[in-house]
Simulated scan of single mutants.
Amino acid sequence: MERGVDTWWDHLVDVLATLGEVTDRDPGGLTVVLDEGGGSTRAVEIVMTPDEWDDMCGIGGWEMDAGAQHVRQQVKDLPRDKSYLVYSLYNLVPCDSPSLPVDPAFARLQELAAQHPNGIPGGRWYAYKPDQA
């Protein structure tokens, strides 16, 4: 694991290392191996790049240590039926896979777009000034 390039990322790794072994995750992120006691371990994969971590802290409003401690707590509290924390809009979302689940509303919009690649016949969108509505 390359160290010293991104102080914020390094701090996150250091805080997570208090829980267990931390390694780089391919293609991006970190894997934290937690000791579950009795010789068993559990791997939690954080799907997030250093740039997303910077965004999560900077744009999302976390200070470096508070953000790292928050992620540490999320790793500790991750339900046993989940193995991933996936970055989405300045937060980490517990997931079953390294991808975010598809929102049913967006899935329906994608379906409609595929059925009508040139737009819905007769459909129009208009913008009016507030005083004309």
Rank of each mutant, 00 (worst) to 15 (best):
G4P: 13
H11C: 14
D14H: 03
V15Y: 09
A17V: 08
L19R: 01
G20P: 13
G20W: 14
G20C: 02
V22K: 01
V22G: 02
V22S: 09
T23F: 03
R25L: 01
D26L: 02
D26P: 00
D26I: 02
G29M: 00
V33P: 13
E36M: 11
G37Q: 06
G38C: 03
G39D: 11
S40K: 13
V44H: 05
E45N: 09
M48E: 09
M48V: 02
P50A: 04
P50R: 01
P50V: 02
E52V: 02
W53T: 07
W53K: 02
C57L: 14
G61C: 11
E63M: 10
M64W: 12
D65E: 15
G67Y: 09
A68P: 06
Q69C: 15
H70I: 04
V71Y: 07
Q73R: 14
V75I: 07
D77K: 05
P79D: 01
P79K: 02
R80L: 14
L85H: 08
V86R: 01
Y87I: 02
Y90L: 04
V93G: 15
V93K: 12
C95P: 04
S97H: 11
P98L: 02
V102N: 06
V102T: 11
P104H: 05
A105C: 10
F106H: 10
F106K: 10
R108V: 15
L109W: 04
